[in-house]
Measured scan of single mutants.
Amino acid sequence: MKTQEELTEIVRDHFSDMGEIATLYVQVYESSLESLVGGVIFEDGRHYTFVYENEDLVYE
């Protein structure tokens, strides 16, 4: 089982391919040991929310 830090790094690596990240945040109250819920804001102003669970990243 991966730690929350490892899950965060996986998500950061994925989004870094889309541009320069200004902020990546995790909603700790919605996340667990198996899933990571949060959002990412890019330097150009784009903002996505995401759920990473079971090695699957869903964002909008």
Rank of each mutant, 00 (worst) to 15 (best):
M1S: 13
M1E: 08
M1Q: 13
M1N: 12
M1C: 09
M1K: 13
M1T: 12
M1D: 07
K2H: 08
K2Q: 06
K2A: 07
T3Q: 05
T3A: 05
T3K: 06
Q4A: 08
Q4C: 08
Q4Y: 11
Q4P: 06
Q4D: 04
E5G: 08
E5C: 12
E5T: 08
E5N: 09
E5W: 12
E5R: 08
E6K: 06
E6M: 10
E6V: 08
E6F: 08
E6Q: 09
E6P: 03
E6H: 08
E6W: 07
L7E: 01
L7F: 04
L7S: 02
L7N: 03
L7V: 06
L7Q: 04
T8D: 03
T8V: 10
T8S: 09
T8L: 12
T8P: 02
T8Y: 11
T8E: 14
E9G: 10
E9F: 11
E9W: 12
E9L: 13
E9D: 11
E9K: 14
E9I: 11
I10Q: 07
I10W: 10
I10E: 07
I10L: 11
I10H: 07
I10N: 05
I10D: 05
I10A: 07
I10Y: 09
V11M: 05
V11F: 03
V11K: 01
V11T: 03
V11Q: 00
V11G: 01
V11R: 01
V11P: 01
R12W: 13
R12F: 09
R12Y: 10
R12I: 08
R12S: 05
R12K: 10
R12T: 06
R12H: 06
R12G: 04
D13K: 15
D13A: 15
D13F: 15
D13Y: 15
D13H: 14
D13S: 15
D13R: 14
D13W: 14
H14K: 13
H14C: 08
H14G: 05
H14S: 08
H14I: 15
H14R: 13
F15D: 01
F15M: 07
F15N: 01
F15T: 01
F15S: 01
S16Q: 10
S16Y: 07
S16N: 10
S16V: 09
S16C: 07
S16W: 07
D17S: 14
D17K: 15
D17N: 13
D17H: 15
D17V: 14
D17L: 14
M18N: 03
M18A: 04
M18T: 03
M18E: 04
M18Q: 06
M18G: 03
G19P: 02
G19S: 03
G19H: 02
G19N: 02
G19W: 03
G19F: 03
E20C: 11
E20A: 13
E20W: 09
E20L: 12
E20P: 10
E20Q: 14
E20K: 15
I21Q: 01
I21S: 01
I21G: 02
I21E: 01
I21P: 02
I21H: 02
I21R: 01
I21V: 07
A22W: 09
A22E: 07
A22K: 14
A22L: 10
A22P: 01
T23K: 11
T23E: 08
T23F: 11
T23A: 12
T23L: 12
L24G: 00
L24C: 04
L24D: 00
L24W: 05
L24F: 10
L24S: 01
Y25S: 04
Y25M: 04
Y25R: 03
Y25F: 05
Y25E: 04
Y25H: 04
V26E: 01
V26W: 06
V26K: 02
V26R: 02
Q27D: 08
Q27M: 14
Q27R: 12
Q27L: 15
Q27S: 13
Q27G: 08
Q27T: 12
V28P: 06
V28I: 13
Y29W: 12
Y29R: 05
Y29D: 05
Y29N: 07
Y29S: 07
Y29E: 06
Y29C: 07
E30F: 06
E30G: 08
E30R: 08
E30K: 13
E30N: 15
E30W: 07
E30C: 12
S31V: 10
S31R: 08
S31G: 10
S31N: 09
S31Y: 13
S32F: 09
S32N: 11
S32R: 06
S32E: 11
S32Y: 10
S32C: 09
S32G: 09
S32Q: 11
S32H: 12
S32A: 12
L33I: 13
L33S: 12
L33Y: 11
L33W: 10
L33N: 14
E34Q: 14
E34K: 09
S35L: 14
S35K: 15
S35T: 12
S35F: 12
S35D: 03
S35Q: 12
L36T: 02
L36C: 04
L36P: 02
L36V: 06
L36H: 01
L36A: 04
L36W: 05
L36F: 07
L36E: 00
V37N: 06
V37C: 11
V37Q: 10
V37K: 15
V37E: 08
V37D: 03
G38I: 04
G38P: 00
G38F: 03
G38A: 01
G38Q: 01
G38E: 01
G38N: 00
G39W: 15
G39E: 12
G39I: 14
G39Q: 08
G39Y: 13
G39K: 06
G39A: 08
G39L: 11
G39D: 06
V40D: 00
V40I: 08
V40Y: 01
I41T: 06
I41Y: 09
I41R: 05
I41M: 09
F42T: 02
F42M: 12
F42C: 02
F42R: 00
F42L: 07
F42Y: 05
E43A: 15
E43D: 10
E43I: 14
E43L: 15
E43N: 12
D44P: 01
D44Q: 02
D44W: 02
D44Y: 02
D44G: 04
D44E: 02
G45T: 04
G45I: 01
G45K: 04
G45D: 03
G45R: 04
G45M: 04
R46Q: 06
R46D: 04
R46V: 05
R46N: 05
R46H: 06
R46E: 04
H47K: 08
H47G: 04
H47F: 07
H47E: 07
H47N: 05
H47L: 05
Y48K: 01
Y48I: 07
Y48T: 01
Y48D: 00
Y48L: 07
T49C: 07
T49I: 10
T49L: 10
T49Y: 07
T49D: 03
T49W: 07
T49S: 11
T49H: 08
F50G: 00
F50L: 01
F50Q: 00
F50S: 00
F50M: 00
F50Y: 06
F50A: 00
V51W: 13
V51G: 03
V51S: 10
V51A: 08
V51T: 12
Y52N: 01
Y52A: 03
Y52I: 07
Y52R: 02
Y52L: 09
Y52K: 02
Y52E: 00
Y52T: 02
Y52C: 04
Y52H: 02
Y52W: 09
Y52G: 00
E53A: 15
E53M: 14
E53C: 11
E53Q: 13
E53H: 13
N54L: 08
N54I: 05
N54W: 07
N54E: 06
N54G: 10
N54Y: 08
N54K: 15
N54F: 10
N54C: 08
E55H: 12
E55Q: 12
E55S: 11
E55F: 11
E55V: 06
E55A: 12
E55N: 14
D56S: 15
D56L: 15
D56V: 15
D56G: 14
D56C: 13
D56E: 13
D56I: 15
L57A: 02
L57C: 04
L57I: 10
L57E: 01
L57Y: 04
L57N: 02
V58E: 07
V58S: 14
V58Q: 11
V58F: 14
V58D: 07
V58T: 12
V58K: 15
V58R: 14
V58A: 09
V58N: 09
Y59L: 07
Y59E: 03
Y59W: 11
Y59G: 03
Y59A: 05
Y59I: 09
Y59K: 05
Y59M: 09
Y59H: 08
E60W: 15
E60K: 15
E60C: 13
